[in-house]
């Protein structure tokens, strides 16, 4: 009954890439996304949602990282998303700061 190995990544670097992409990349995407939204909606409410909803999104992103054929592509996608949300944060801080 164990999962059929033919569908699983066998190389250790691929495993490493997927696990780290899901864990760290997923975290970065989650936090930057909520922060970017937080500049434009009520930030206290958005950050409150991050405290519980963040874990749901993070777990989902963690899962999705395993579905990439190439783990480094997962890293690429998550990094791009993080950079994109970070850019929103950067710009929002200048034009629509919360403090």
């Amino acid at each position: 009954m164990p999962a059929n190995k033919k569908y699983l990544s066998t190389s250790n670097t691929q495993r490493f890439a997927k696990i780290t992409a899901g864990f760290f990349g997923g975290y970065a995407v989650t936090v930057t996304l909520f922060m970017a939204i937080g500049f434009w909606l009520d930030h206290v409410n958005v950050l409150t949602t991050l405290r519980f909803g963040g874990f749901m999104l993070w777990a989902t992103l963690f899962l999705l990282a395993f579905l990439f054929k190439n783990g480094w592509k997962a890293w690429g996608v998550y990094l791009l998303a993080t950079v994109f949300f970070s850019a929103i944060i950067y710009i929002s801080k200048i034009y629509h700061p919360i403090i």
């Binding site: 936090v31 922060m35 937080g38 930030h43 405290r51």
Partner: peptide
Amino acid sequence: ACLIIGTSVMSPAVVNFMYD
């Protein structure tokens, strides 16, 4: 997860980048 690490895991980035 929210009660035990919600703040400690989620807040560092928020403090640094949103609240300077």
